[in-house]
């Protein structure tokens, strides 16, 4: 009897807390998502209504044609080409960037080699210059390699590790208890086995986070594709989107918003897919404490 009352009160309390959570999460969520909703709404308006009914989120009539026409682009190559190019670059860059960064991070985080501090300082230093000032000399290097008009200058550097992900993975690895490494070492594992058996599985959250970022960054990467690709057949979505706006003639705003909306779908999908795996790490339980 007494117990029943208590659990009843607890579930009620729990329900209230859950309600409160969802109430505020949704309220806050509306503020966060408003621009996206605005953009989607505008992508369905007739072009001349985008700015005349700027505060309205409901189009006077739904112009799905914006998507059809936007997708057609100039007619020579459609967004199908641009999407598959972007996807190709983004998938390879993500695999390369995440895999190599994790390896490099392990080297910096766990192995006490000579020169570690110096190289780590250089690693941080490479993040500090604006990419724009490195662009021209980089172009000349890739030109000497005869890599212009291929995806190599965009993808290959990713396979050399991305400082941001290296640093990120390092920070996560440094949070993994040392006892685990030592236990592996006692079991006769070398550096490589310790990495593959202990650190790699335990740094899953940072690998997931890196994958989400790597995909998004290479998806929206603009400067690289712009300067290294010459043929429209090889253009990416990011280049194509820039060609909507025109300072001298009327811009096809609703077409621009339609294609921008489509262009974030892969990124959102990748996010939703990967974030599911952001769950409690179980492997460390019972080791310390």
């Amino acid at each position: 009897m007494k117990n029943g009352q208590k659990t009843g009160r607890m579930t009620w309390k729990k329900g209230l807390r859950s309600f409160r959570f969802h109430f505020f999460a949704i309220l806050f969520g509306i503020i966060m998502i408003y621009p996206l909703v605005w953009m989607v709404a505008s992508s369905l308006k007739p072009n001349d209504e985008v700015f005349t009914t700027v505060t309205s989120l409901i189009p006077s009539r739904f112009v799905w044609q914006n998507y059809v026409e936007g997708w057609q682009s100039t007619g020579r190559y459609t967004y199908a080409t641009y999407f598959s190019n972007s996807l190709f670059i983004a998938v390879l860059s993500t695999i390369g960037g995440v895999a190599s960064s994790s390896l490099v991070a392990y080297g910096f985080a766990r192995i006490p080699f000579k020169g570690r501090k110096v190289f780590f300082t250089i690693l941080m230093g490479t993040m500090l210059l604006p990419v724009q000032v490195l662009m021209i000399p980089q172009y000349v290097i890739f030109q000497k390699l005869r890599w212009i008009n291929t995806y190599l200058p965009i993808i290959v550097p990713q396979f050399c590790g991305v400082p941001f992900f290296i640093f990120l993975n390092m920070q996560f690895m440094r949070g993994v208890p040392r006892e685990l490494d030592e236990a592996a070492e006692i079991d006769g594992c070398g550096w490589l086995r310790t990495y593959t058996n202990i650190l790699l599985p335990l740094s899953k959250p940072s690998l997931i986070t890196s994958s989400i970022f790597a995909f998004y960054w290479s998806w929206q990467e603009f400067l690289g594709p712009l300067i290294y690709l010459n043929k429209p057949k090889k253009y990416t979505v990011s280049i194509a989107l820039k060609m909507f706006a025109d300072p001298s003639v009327q811009t096809n705003w609703s077409g621009l918003f339609a294609m921008t909306t489509l262009s974030i779908i892969p990124v959102v999908a990748v996010f939703m897919f990967f974030q599911k795996y952001l769950v409690e790490g179980v492997a460390t339980t019972g080791l310390k404490a």
């Binding site: 190599s100 490099v104 080297g107 080699f113 190289f119 490479t126 070398g190 550096w191 490589l192």
Partner: peptide, 14 residues
């Protein structure tokens, strides 16, 4: 050796 082996991809890129 192990340290440089692990950071080799980055070192190469650098």
């Amino acid at each position: 050796l192990a340290g440089y082996a692990f950071i080799a991809p980055w070192l190469f890129g650098l």
